[in-house]
Design a protein around this nucleic acid. Structure first.
Lengths: 137, 137
DNA sequence: GGCAACTGCGGGTATATACACGTATTTATG
DNA sequence: CATAAATACGTGTATATACCCGCAGTTGCC
């Protein structure tokens, strides 16, 4: 693999690599990393609208809308209209909650394993740097 | 934006954010960050095959094959068969090289700007951490 | 030399992602 | 109240990404 000094390329590469790790760990429960993240965020909000869930995740609304369809198709969440007839509120189904419970265990294993490989200093340094990068725009 | 402890999610978020920065910087020359990276790698190899270019970039071959088509459609690179009738060799066109020259200046600006915002210590710490993450599998 | 194994690719499929545009609904303004 | 502005979505389009499968060409082995 050719080395690069480009921060963007390095980030992209590292993300693909780590993403693969999490994807593999979650494959047994039928989720990928992005889907797990979506369900986790959904769990922490009270029947959010598509827009507010997208904001919580830092994703474009139309992106999230499409991601939701995939999980809706798997029967893991439901989209129902609220009082405001414009928006659709997202909530996990029973299957979605059950799936998330299983996924959480798998996630904890890979997260822990990665943390061990990095060691606590690098791990927290990385976290801090990523926070900083996230808040650029 | 909801905070998360998930390394994968944090990486994905930070990458999207930084990627946007580079995309914006490169938009004036009609490239995005991934395309710039592709052309840069192509510049550094001698008429690589699709497979070897994919390996150099750490991308799946079929992914790279599709990415190549986009740049081929823009007239920035050409795919020609070599002696081995199985593979197709990739080379930049004159337009591709010209485009890359322009893109390089834009890239340097955004790379420098990001480096300044981080400061030299964080910048090199980040680089080192990303290298480490890239080499996990 | 002929068949088996390997290599290099393209295509199918699925997903994630973003931006621009249009539409329906709600709110604000005069 | 009527119209303008703002809000919430969906769709169209484009791109990046990966995995699997199959085909064609090459190599190796006997």
């Amino acid at each position: 693999m050719l080395p690069t000094h480009c921060l963007c390329t390095k980030l992209r590469r590292a993300t693909r690599s780590v993403n693969r790790l999490y994807d593999d760990a979650l494959a047994a429960v039928g989720l990928n990393a992005a889907q797990y993240s979506l369900l986790r965020n959904l769990e922490r909000l009270e029947r959010p609208s598509i827009t507010s869930l997208a904001e919580a995740m830092g994703l474009d609304r139309s992106t999230l809308g499409r991601n939701l369809r995939v999980l809706e198709g798997k029967g893991l969440l439901a989209l129902e209209g609220g009082e405001d007839q414009r928006n659709r509120l997202v909530s996990p189904t029973a299957a979605g909650r059950a799936c998330l419970d299983q996924a959480r265990a798998a996630w904890e294993r890979v997260q822990e394993q990665l943390g061990q490989r990095l060691g606590p200093e690098k791990r927290s340094a990385l976290m801090a740097l990523l926070d900083e990068l996230e808040n650029l725009g």
